[in-house]
Design a protein around this nucleic acid. Structure first.
Lengths: 330, 330
DNA sequence: TTGTAAGCGTTATCAC
DNA sequence: GTGATAACGCTTACAA
């Protein structure tokens, strides 16, 4: 490996001068600068990031924690984050936490150890008192998931409203028996809690009750959606509509319902959440709550860069619009 | 930041001893070991990876380069790689190259700089003579994409066979006018070339000719698939079947064909490539060439770990099975 | 404008 | 068994 000393030696200058050229520091004479650059070119020299970090330098690298990269919502979110980063001269490294507290912690540690300048969390596994200490090591930002007590910037959507307009839409379509799927537990906190409450409020305003056996918790995948349909078909008293927590679950519901010969949306209406590309591919096309994933990613990266470059940055919360996209499944 | 000296001081021992405990080195007395561990616990101390790397240590971190994370094929590949890594005590960081040569190079540089112990490439943007120099810095492995001249392990599929059995299947179904979509250029090299040739061979054996206007290059997205259908509908002499290069393109073809009122597969047969989850969701369900993405990822990670841990590892090429999954779109 | 030297946190080598 | 110490490659006071 060629290092800064090699460059210094070959150009007949000191390491200090080479370093100054590298970092665009003041007062290096044009001639010396050119010599140094030529030698760097010749040797194919690249500064060693570990050494730089050890000296406490920034790395223009941002870490992004996602729960499951196979969920297209997160794939698109990461994609948007990555593009925005690149346009601003930053690099992104992506970590998958897989809903695992330890993994999340391991990744947060990269911030403590200055492996990344900042971290964007798109999901949260640990409690705030576990995460909070890391904020002293660099900017931390939440995008998608949020916590009321957390003192970090958040890019979020009004999940309460999202679930509310979705459920109300089903009610307006005449449904009075509505099942509900959630990725978490129905009682949980944060994003899930808001969604749950939005759903409940819509029902309440329509004078409907939440029926416990129509609540499905921990539903995340296509396969989960299929299972929901199977379970519903075995019930004596069946819901006529399903509010799913994600387009993935909705996909499974629609596929299974089709295979069982149900006519959608008449025998069963389905509403998704996310507005992933698959929503347009399903038959019938999926009515869903659109989350503006590209804007979320872009905003998140812009804010974290601002935090890095402007020390006086004031923490605030950004709420982006969420909307109902009506297609054919309701 | 607490460092090794803090731990040493507080436990009344030397940095050397602390380091020995940290690295499970020989001959540290039980009592001292316990003292050290307790202090580490108390202080919440974590070794600084930059310092370790600077000393030339391994980091148990593997980098994975993907072209586009929003393509579910790569999302699932990464997922499998990540899971296997975790089971073996390794971490994974993911880079998106976005088909960009510079970005790919920037990521390869992380190997040179010992930021990662090894790199798995799932796509290739630069020429081999550009990539080759990096092999001296650590294990490099190709998974999915491959190059004949490259002296690195490859996890690959028989793309020639994949395209061949796909095309032959269409021919067996009675089609004689077959359009072809490819993600690259029809003339290209490596993976694409093999696919193209497999397709051509199947046609040739059936006495069919490749019709240039039915070859669509640079087709990657759902939207691309939609455009293909639009173009075909404007032709006087239309193909009756489409071989698409990916399930994503096939999805677009099916969606657009449905909207245009074509009855599938009678008016238009479609075959995909990948066997992504969406294949089961489409109407009609997609016939496709299955790539064993989980096995590929698992194998790739296992091999790269072997390369890291066994210096005498001999480079070889692993070919995994590829198969036709017949559903309803053909 | 340039050079010297200290120090970032670790681990390996050599003494003891 | 344990402890000094040098070295990894870089940046930055401080000197010159």
């Amino acid at each position: 490996m060629t290092n800064i000393s090699d460059v210094a030696k070959l150009s007949g200058l000191s390491k200090a001068t080479v370093s100054r050229v590298l970092n665009n520091h003041s007062y290096v004479s044009k001639e010396k600068r050119e010599i140094v650059l030529k030698v760097i070119e010749e040797l194919g020299y690249t500064p060693n990031p570990s050494a730089r970090r050890l000296r406490g330098q920034l790395t223009t690298t941002i870490g992004v924690i996602v729960p499951r990269i196979v969920n297209p919502f997160f794939a698109y979110l990461v994609n948007s984050i990555e593009e925005t980063a690149y346009q601003n001269g930053y690099q992104v490294i992506i970590f998958q936490s897989n809903l695992n507290k330890e993994k999340e912690l391991a990744f947060l540690n990269l911030l403590k150890m200055k492996q990344v300048d900042g971290i964007i969390m798109t999901s949260i596994e640990n409690d705030w008192n576990v995460i909070e200490p890391f904020t002293q090591y660099g900017p931390l930002l939440m995008c998608n998931e949020y916590m009321d007590q957390a003192q970090v910037p958040m890019i979020r959507l009004d999940q309460h409203k999202g679930a509310f307009i979705g459920a109300r839409h089903l009610i307006e379509r005449g449904h009075r028996k509505i099942a509900y799927c959630t990725g978490g537990l129905f009682a949980q906190e944060r994003k899930d809690k808001d969604r749950n409450q939005g759903f409940q409020q819509a029902l309440m305003e329509a004078g409907l009750e939440v029926i416990p056996k129509w609540i499905f918790v921990n539903q995340n995948s296509i396969e989960d959606g299929r299972r929901v349909v199977k379970q519903i078909l075995e019930m004596d008293d069946r819901p006529t509509a399903i509010f799913t927590g994600s387009d993935e679950v909705a996909s499974g519901v629609i596929a299974e319902a089709n295979e069982r010969g149900l006519t959608l949306p008449d025998s069963l209406a389905v509403i998704g959440f996310d507005d992933q590309p698959v929503a347009e591919l399903l038959v019938p096309k999926l009515t869903t709550i659109r989350q503006p994933v590209d804007e979320m990613g872009k905003k998140a990266m812009e804010i974290i860069i601002k935090m890095l470059e402007d020390p006086g940055y004031e923490i605030s919360i950004y709420e982006l619009p969420i909307e109902l996209v009506i297609r054919q499944s309701t």
